[in-house]
Simulated scan of single mutants.
Amino acid sequence: MQAQPEKKRHRFKMPSAFTILFIIIIIIAVLSWFIPAGKYSTDSSGNLIANTYHTVKSNPQGLWDVVMSPVYGMVGDKNTDGAISVSLFILVIGDFLGVVNKTKALDAGISSIVNRYKGREKVLIPILMTLFALGGSTYGMAEETVAFYPLLIPVMMACGFDSIVAVALALVGTSVGNMASTVNPFATGVASQTLGISPGTAWSRGSSSS
């Protein structure tokens, strides 16, 4: 008897970020036909006033609205302000991270510092935390630090610490940097968009006043 060929099992493959976003857009568009619309009243400064929520006329989203939603999100329309300035800033930062990861420049820099302070590993703690904090403050470094765990854990354990110290070096450092964001597009960029100013407005005003 001939052996029957094994059937290939179709494994679940995680969809891309664009696919997930498009699915969310479709779900929101469908819900717009069923969930009543409403809004809060605002004061002269644009702040929401508590206990003023009221229903308004619904605006169900159709197929054309779903297709055009990414465009409206970027450039805006008569009812919505676009987020093109923040989007372009994030795209530029993304390209920067892509180049850094491709060239392994950041990995080489951290490895060089670790090798230089071999035998004085305790000095690495403030140095590396400062570097990670700078990364978090400037371009939102966070999950990128996972790649450094295999490098930091053996060094810290050889110094007498445990693996938690190595992980905390990256996590705490980047978290502090993100909390004190300077030009981090994922924090200051979004905040600038919320205030209705461009991300570079505060910097230009600060430089002109000085």
Rank of each mutant, 00 (worst) to 15 (best):
L48G: 08
T174P: 13
M129Q: 10
L134I: 12
S175P: 08
N51R: 06
T174K: 04
L195W: 06
Q61V: 06
D77C: 07
I27V: 13
V123R: 01
I93Q: 01
T52Q: 13
K39Y: 12
A147G: 05
L131T: 06
M129N: 05
K57S: 13
T130K: 02
G160N: 15
V100T: 10
V75N: 03
G94D: 01
L48S: 07
T138F: 03
V183C: 07
L21P: 07
A29M: 08
A187C: 06
I35P: 13
M129C: 14
V86N: 10
L91M: 14
I24V: 13
V66L: 05
P154G: 10
I20K: 08
G73A: 09
F12M: 06
G38V: 09
V99C: 00
G206I: 11
R205P: 07
P5L: 12
L48I: 02
T130D: 01
S137Q: 04
I110Q: 03
A3P: 13
I125R: 05
E6S: 12
K104T: 11
Q193T: 07
A187G: 03
K13A: 14
T145E: 05
A142M: 09
I125K: 12
A37F: 08
D95I: 00
G62C: 06
V190F: 11
A105F: 03
T145A: 09
F96N: 01
T174E: 15
I90V: 03
R116G: 00
S44F: 12
G119R: 05
N178K: 07
L128F: 02
T201L: 13
S137L: 06
G189N: 01
P5A: 14
Y40V: 02
K104G: 07
G173F: 09
S112H: 07
F148R: 00
P154T: 06
I93A: 00
S41G: 04
G46H: 02
M156W: 15
D162L: 12
A50S: 08
W203G: 07
G62I: 07
R120C: 01
S163F: 13
A202T: 11
V123N: 04
R205L: 15
F22S: 12
I23F: 11
F161M: 13
F96L: 08
S210Q: 14
V30K: 02
A147W: 11
K118I: 00
A133C: 11
L128C: 02
M68L: 13
M74E: 07
W64N: 08
I25A: 08
S111I: 01
V67G: 08
A191F: 09
L91T: 05
T174M: 10
N184L: 04
V75Y: 05
S85V: 02
T80C: 02
D81E: 13
I25L: 07
